[in-house]
Design a protein around this nucleic acid. Structure first.
Length: 490
RNA sequence: GGCCCGUUGGUGAAGCGGUCAACACACCAGCCUUUCACGCUGGCAUUCAGGGGUUCGAAUCCCCUACGGGUCACCA
């Protein structure tokens, strides 16, 4: 086996990049990079019926967005091309023939109906459903007879009986399986296309993958693959099976599950940051050790340094949406205002708040607007609702605002403020607003909440909100004046 | 049903024979602040699914039970 660590992420092109897939890819990537090795993305498209047209691009785009860079794949090529299973059929064919010739595999003529019946019988009898071996020891004549009947042959691997296969797993330690519980499994369909277990074994071996990282659902496939490696005379790679990811209810995440956003591009579209997603996802079933155990904010570079497969947990990981929000907010606060603004603009455009092409001053205005909310955003899309009052034609007063505005000093304070604003020349920058408010205070004698709350309530319609001076400044002289006058009935 | 695996607070999670059982999210209280948000400070498991054992000593090792999960496809 090559010394250089090589890992791979091998999705089937059936949909967008999923949380679970992203985690598997991340783990694989981190492990390879930690050892200065290679990370490969291979497309496992042997189930042609299920393949979805642009799923391959979607998967790769998702990885690219996360910053998970591959060294070899369908787009950049590499020394072990091609990287798409269905482009490798002649390779599988070669090994299939080899197994057939050595009688380690044999043609099976059973129909789906027959197999289904077998299964039902076994289930009814309380037995484990597995292939009963009807075609296992057919003579040449018997085979010829089935072919003459017009039956099609799939190819089964002849599982040796009475053996114990030990899977050496980074996370689970040694897990053993009895071959007697396996049953001969199909490695190629009647049309010659390999099944997953066969293709994955051939591909991993030929691509010199040293460490296979994948989800727990694959662990029971592993003994089959080990048997295949053995039959062909290859050394098996090391394995690491990551635990399942459960939804917040502690149930297995299903594709239809609506309690949780499952696809990476959905997070991207909502304004989650890739570094937050990576950081959150890596903690799904993995935890750092030693002094790093008390930390949980990690950059990709840092993760490459501290990640280790044997720190992956055996217990399922629960997707904690509250934690994700907190983490994304953390990264949003850390990001530059320019970057967050850039992400916010499309949302504001889509909501009809601003136009697509912004003049320099408009852009500066939007930047300040976003800056007002940057620290409280869980995800950037929230900017639309948060900034609603800036764009409304008429101020809508909340119940609390109405209460505040009923106080007796309100008309006096507001009238004084309108007057101050009207008398002011030039732009209303925050410092100016501060001075005007101060002047109102001197003039009317009202200060603190009695002064600020009426102004806030009348201008924004809310009793809560971001910095008042900046808000008023952003609203501009005209808007503030008209809103105030409307309220005062002028 | 067979075979594999898991089970620490409201939640995520560290812990690998001797700790007052980390840390974080959430929550509560206080501070900061014109409000909200942010931030800061403090509080929050006498107990590690339950029951047996091993040991001077167990969340940590062994066994049983319960619960949860994976898998037994011509899907990956």
């Amino acid at each position: 086996m090559a010394d250089r660590v090589r890992t791979r992420y091998a999705p089937s092109p059936t949909g967008h990049l999923h949380i679970g897939g992203a985690r598997t890819a991340l783990f694989s990537y981190l492990w390879a990079k930690k050892h200065g090795g290679d990370f490969i993305v291979r497309i496992e498209d042997t189930d042609v019926e299920r393949n979805v047209a642009d799923a391959e691009e979607k998967q790769m785009a998702g990885l690219a967005w996360l910053g998970i860079q591959w060294d070899e794949s369908v787009d950049v090529g590499g020394p072990h091309a091609p990287y798409r299973s269905m482009d490798r059929t002649e390779i599988y064919e070669e090994y299939l023939q080899r197994l057939l010739t050595s009688e380690q595999a044999y043609p099976c003529y059973c129909t789906s109906e027959e197999l289904e019946q077998d299964r039902e019988k076994q289930m009814a009898a309380g037995q484990a459903p597995r292939y009963i071996g009807r075609c296992r020891d057919l003579t040449e004549e018997e085979r010829a007879a089935r072919v003459a009947e017009g039956r099609q042959a799939s190819i089964r691997f002849r599982v040796p009986g009475g053996r114990t296969i030990v899977v050496e797993d980074f996370v689970r330690g040694n897990v053993s399986f009895e071959t007697d519980g396996l049953g001969d499994f199909i490695i190629a369909r009647p049309d010659g296309r390999p099944t997953y277990n066969f293709a994955v074994t051939i591909d991993d071996a030929l691509m010199e993958i040293t460490d296979v990282v994948r989800g727990e659902e694959h662990i029971s496939n592993t003994p089959r693959q080990i048997l295949l490696y053995e039959a062909i005379g290859w050394e098996a790679p090391r394995f690491a099976h990551a635990p399942l990811i459960l939804n917040p209810d502690g149930k297995k995440m299903s594709k239809r599950d609506e309690s949780i956003i499952q696809f990476i591009d959905q997070y991207r579209d909502l304004g989650y940051l890739p570094e937050a997603i990576n950081n959150f996802i890596v903690l799904l079933g993995w935890a750092p050790s030693g002094e790093k155990a008390e930390e949980e904010i990690f950059s990709l570079a840092e993760l490459i340094d501290i990640f280790s497969l044997d720190r992956i947990s055996k217990a399922p990981a629960v997707f904690d949406t509250g934690k994700l929000k907190w983490m994304n907010n953390h990264y949003i606060k850390e990001a530059s205002l320019e970057r967050i603004t850039e992400l916010a603009i499309p949302h504001l455009v889509k909501a009809g708040r601003i136009t697509e092409s912004l003049s320099e001053s408009e852009r500066a205005w939007v930047t300040r607007l976003v800056g007002l909310y940057q620290e409280q955003l869980d995800h950037v899309a929230q900017i639309v609702d948060l900034t609603a009052f800036f764009f409304r034609e008429e101020v809508v007063h909340s119940a609390e605002a109405t209460t505040v505005l009923a106080e007796e000093q309100v008309p006096i304070v507001l009238a004084a403020f309108v007057e101050q604003v009207a008398r002011h020349e030039g732009e209303l920058d925050p410092e100016e607003v501060k001075k005007l408010l101060k002047a109102v205070q001197k003039e009317t004698g009202y200060k603190g909440k009695q002064l600020f709350m009426p102004v806030r309530a009348a201008v924004t319609g809310e009793t809560h909100g971001p910095d008042l001076r900046e808000s008023i400044s952003l609203l501009g002289k005209e808007q503030v004046t008209s809103r105030l006058n409307t309220f005062l009935g002028n």
